[in-house]
Every structure is written in structure tokens, then in C-alpha cells.
Design a binder for these strands. Structure first.
Lengths: 209, 209
DNA sequence: GCCTCTCCTTGACACTTGTCAAGAAAACTT
DNA sequence: AAGTTTTCTTGACAAGTGTCAAGGAGAGGC
């Protein structure tokens, strides 16, 4: 057996992953069949089992493939903002924009995360990705606190869970009502962010208010 | 045709709904088949279509049936607490306890809410129930603010989304790690609740800090 | 007893699903 | 060009799905 040219093989896997994401985002995990997925690709339905051993493996590979691109979404926000207000505005705008641009992917993410509560096989990958998302959000909060000359008032998991709740609520509302709700999301974020930091060590600054 | 004794008919529907909840909570919406549901009931699989026209109708009826019981879960907390600290502690304890007692039901709820983003037919019922949950949470927040002699610092949808995020995160963690995470939830709630209210109209009290 | 109506079971239907094996087609090697 | 390996298609399989129709079982009225 010859060495597999890992590049070629992996490129096909990525190609299939893209098609899978398209279908999964549209139909959700439960209703996305391998035939439907293959139908959204240049290949036929049998090829999936040449590149993946399982439907589960395909799904996990796909969502990893996607989330890998996404964990840097707010990095520019973090690095380019120079004032708290600027950061909050940029962050809020980015949150709303990604719902506009990638609603199906976000729906898929929440779908998979929920399914992972029922299906053990998804749990490990989902847990890991969720951790990277928490870290992603925490970088924003941490930077925001720094720009405020303050400290986060809640730990990372709490901040992530709260903002995730806002985001998920907005996604849900967006699915029902579309565009108009996104302004509301931005407003929510502007309201909430200040609550997530409190005055830094008062021996140094004496507090902000 | 004789008048249907509405009581009998509805009691059977409720009975089937209970069995459906059992199965749905265990397997999730996608994997819970009508045969499996009937298997958890005293009846055979065909009877479902005698009492419900659809699988969807059964599911919606079931979740409505369940949530109707639940929207009062925190009412005692609201009415029995006389200090902010007492309320927060009771609320936090109740949140943790319901995860302990009814994790499958909560998993089902999040499953259905997520599926409603893919399946139009679920949306109306889910949206309505979500509204009642928001109201349920808001009663807690409102009471808390009153006891603090303060006002909520965020509107109802925001407060609900944030606490829902915390709760969902805890449910997820509980599914993976079990009991130990529930103390964390209580701690999170104690941290977050004070952030959701701010000093009442300063012309009246002069502020708390 | 018999008839009628409600309630429930059984068994079938059309369809979809993930999986896999057999072999065609394409790519690469020599 | 021939042979070999990689890649992909086709078609089938068994299992499972929601749905429904035919008819049995049981109760209650006459």
C-alpha cells in the first residue's frame, strides 16, 4: 500500500464537510440524510463511507471544520478597539452580523449541542468546541474590562453562558421575525456588557462611580 | 353520534402525553418513535392516531401539558421570600433542584425549542411557551428588585435570555458531569442576580451605594 | 338476546434511513 | 500501453419510520 497523499484525501473530506454543513444547516441534524448531503455535493451518496466511517464522524468533522474558522471572529474586535464604547459597539455589531450571515450554521451548532445531551457520541467534540467558544467570548470580556480599567465581575463560564443565552434568544427571534430583532440584540449587548465588569481594585483607582 | 364525554377522552390524551414525555425526554424528539412512545404506555402503537392526528400534535400537546405544570415553579419563591438574599437563595436552590429532578424534561424543552428553528410546525407553540417562561422568570426578577428597593436593570427578554443561558449551560454540564456542577449553578445565580437590578429612582432613595 | 357505538389492536403500506459490497472509472506508475 | 491502485457510482440490504384501514373487544341501550 502506498502512502496516502494526505493533502488530497483531506481536501475531499473538507469538500464533503462543506456540503454537509450546507445540508445540516438547512435541515438540522435529525433530518439531514447522507443522500441529501451528497446531493449538495458533486458526489454520490456512497462516497461518504469512503471518506468517513460513520455519519457521526462526518458530522463531527464538519462542525469542527466550521468552528475552527469561527473562533477568531471577534479577534479583530478585541485588537482594534481602543475604548470600551468602541469595543462594545463593534462586538454587538459583529454578533448581529453573524446571525444575518450565518444563521443556519448557528442553528446547527445549537442543534448539535442539544443533541449531545441525548447522544453520547457527540458529547466529547461538542464539549471541546464549547470550551473554545467560551475562551473566544472571554477574550472579549477580558479586553473590555481592561479598557474600562476594571475587572470582570463574573467568571468566564458565567459570562459565556449569559451572552450565549442572549445570542440564542436573538437567533430564535431572528428565525421567526427576521432582521428587525437584530437591533434589539445590539441593544441588549450594550446593556449587559457594562454589568459584566466592576471597578478594578479600589486601592488603585478608587472606583469609577 | 353521541356526545363525546370530553373528560374521558382528554384523560386518555393526558395519559398518552405522559408516556410521550417519558420517551421524548429519554431519547429526544428525533429518536422518539410512536412505537417507542406507545411502548411506554399501556397501549399499542396504533392508538396514537385515535387520539392525535399527528405525531406533531402529540408532541405539542405533551410539551404544553408539561409546561403548564411548570410555569408556577417559582411562585412560592416569589411569595414566600421577604429579603433579597432569601429570594436569591431559594431561587438558586430551586433551579438546581429542578435539574436534579427533571433533567430529561429540560433537555426535551431545549431540543424542541431548537427544532422549532428548523420545523415551522413547532414554532407557534414553542414561541408561546417561551413567552410564559419569560414571564415566569420576570416575576422573580421583579420581586427581587422590589425586595432590593431597586429596579430591574435589564428588560424582561434580556433577563430571561441570560438566566436561560446559565440554566442551559448548567444542564449541559450536569449531563456530562452530574451532581457536582449544580453548586456552581447556584453560585452563578447568586453572582448574577445582583447585576440585574440597579438602585431605584434616586430622587426617592438617593441610591444604595 | 342483539345492535350500536366507542375504544383499541393488528398488520400492512409506502417511504426513508445508514450501511456496505461489487464493480466501473479514473489516476498514477512503470 | 499495461497494470495497479485510488476513487467513485450503483444498487441492494435490513431496519425503522409515520400513517392508516380492517376489524376485534367491550360496554351500554333496547
Amino acid at each position: 500500500m502506498k502512502d496516502r497523499p494526505a493533502g488530497k484525501f483531506d481536501r475531499r473530506r473538507d469538500e464533503l464537510a462543506e456540503s454537509a454543513l450546507l445540508t445540516l444547516g438547512e435541515l438540522g441534524y435529525a433530518r439531514a440524510s447522507l443522500r441529501e448531503i451528497a446531493g449538495n455535493s458533486p458526489f454520490s451518496h456512497g462516497v461518504v463511507h469512503y471518506y468517513f466511517s460513520d455519519k457521526t464522524e462526518l458530522v463531527i468533522y464538519s462542525v469542527r471544520h466550521y468552528k475552527a474558522r469561527c473562533v477568531t471572529r471577534y479577534d479583530a474586535v478585541v485588537s482594534d478597539s481602543t475604548t470600551p464604547g468602541e469595543l462594545v459597539d463593534a462586538f454587538a455589531a459583529k454578533l448581529a452580523q453573524t446571525i444575518r450571515d450565518e444563521a443556519p450554521m448557528h442553528r446547527l451548532w445549537y442543534d448539535l449541542r442539544t443533541q449531545s445531551m441525548f447522544e453520547e457520541s457527540l458529547r466529547e467534540a461538542i464539549t471541546e468546541i464549547d470550551g473554545t467558544l467560551e475562551a473566544m467570548i472571554w477574550r472579549v470580556i477580558d479586553r473590555y474590562a481592561t479598557l474600562c480599567d476594571a475587572r470582570p465581575s463574573v467568571p468566564a463560564p458565567t459570562a459565556y453562558a449569559m451572552l450565549d443565552g442572549l445570542f440564542q434568544g436573538a437567533l430564535l427571534a431572528y428565525t421567526t421575525s427576521g432582521e428587525p430583532v437584530l437591533d434589539g440584540l445590539a441593544a441588549q449587548v450594550r446593556t449587559v456588557m457594562p454589568l459584566l465588569v466592576s471597578a478594578a481594585d479600589p486601592t488603585r483607582t478608587g472606583g469609577q462611580r
